[in-house]
């Protein structure tokens, strides 16, 4: 039995480690995961390394340096299935905010010795560089969704990760709509469900951590925010420029409000 366990690797690129931590956060389920797979490479959890190739690789982080851009190809070659986890890996992350400006300006103004900094002009998601088998959204990812993806992989079935709006989660759990009842622009109608309804259930609008849902109508929500909720162009631009700012539908909408 033990010899047949699939080998799991967890890789980090430009990221905060929060998504990898979601795996350690599984707590009650972690032992079951460790029994079901051989954790072969997971530096956040153990120094012990088992050589590849790996049956499944979880990749966290975006590609933001020349070194990242090279290393992701090595990871892809060693991985049978490659699953990207989190907003950085699937959309470029919060660090992709630099994509809207000249990165050299940032480097010059932030670092005492800019010559030590080797970075790419843009922070980009993994699928811009190598083929990806599944993308798990979130900033951070939801541990139950991570378990579901691993579970589906281990059982050879399609993961139950819906692509519909965050609103569906709000309505299923009975949360009162923040946008309608408070007049606060909320990215929920444009954002993929999966967080477990975190912000709206705490009376806050959705910040779009899970990225665009299928067929998001960003223009309509932006228009309503300006026309009926009293937001100005700058506020609308900032609404779309957060954790998944570089996901194409959000990027285009924010650029329309430059």
């Amino acid at each position: 039995m033990a010899a047949k366990r699939p080998k799991l690797a967890v890789w980090k690129f430009s990221s905060c480690d929060g998504c990898q931590l979601s795996l350690l956060d599984c707590e009650d389920e972690l032992l079951a995961v460790a029994e079901a797979v051989e954790i072969a490479y997971f530096l956040e959890a153990t120094r012990a390394e088992v050589r590849g190739p790996y049956d499944v690789s979880l990749v966290e982080g975006s590609i933001s340096t020349p070194h990242d851009a090279e290393r992701i190809h090595k990871v892809r070659r060693k991985s049978r299935a490659l699953i990207t986890i989190g907003a950085c890996a699937t959309a470029g992350g919060i660090q992709a905010l630099r994509n809207f400006h000249d990165v050299d300006d940032f480097v010059r103004s932030v670092y005492a010795h800019p010559e030590y900094i080797s970075t790419l002009a843009k922070s980009t998601p993994i699928q811009d560089h190598v083929p990806v088998d599944f993308e798990l959204r979130g900033c951070p990812i939801d541990k139950f969704q991570l378990l579901e993806v691993l579970n589906a992989f281990l059982n050879g079935r399609k993961p139950n990760i819906p692509r519909h709006s965050q609103c569906v989660e709000c309505k299923l759990s009975g949360t009162v709509c923040v946008m309608v009842a408070k007049g606060e622009p909320c990215l929920g109608p444009l954002t993929q469900a999966g967080c477990g309804n975190l912000c709206p259930s705490c009376d806050r609008p959705c910040y779009g951590c899970f990225g665009p849902k299928e067929t998001p109508n960003t223009a309509s929500l932006a228009d309503w925010s300006v026309r009926c909720l009293g937001r100005d162009e700058r506020q609308v631009r900032h609404m779309f420029r957060a954790f998944t700012a570089y996901a194409e539908p959000f990027r285009k909408e924010s650029e329309a409000h430059e």
């Binding site: 609103c167 569906v168 929920g188 444009l190 929500l221």
Partner: peptide, 14 residues
Amino acid sequence: VARRCLSCANCTLV
């Protein structure tokens, strides 16, 4: 309608 509709599903869920 499609220009305005968010296809968020709220109408059907309420």
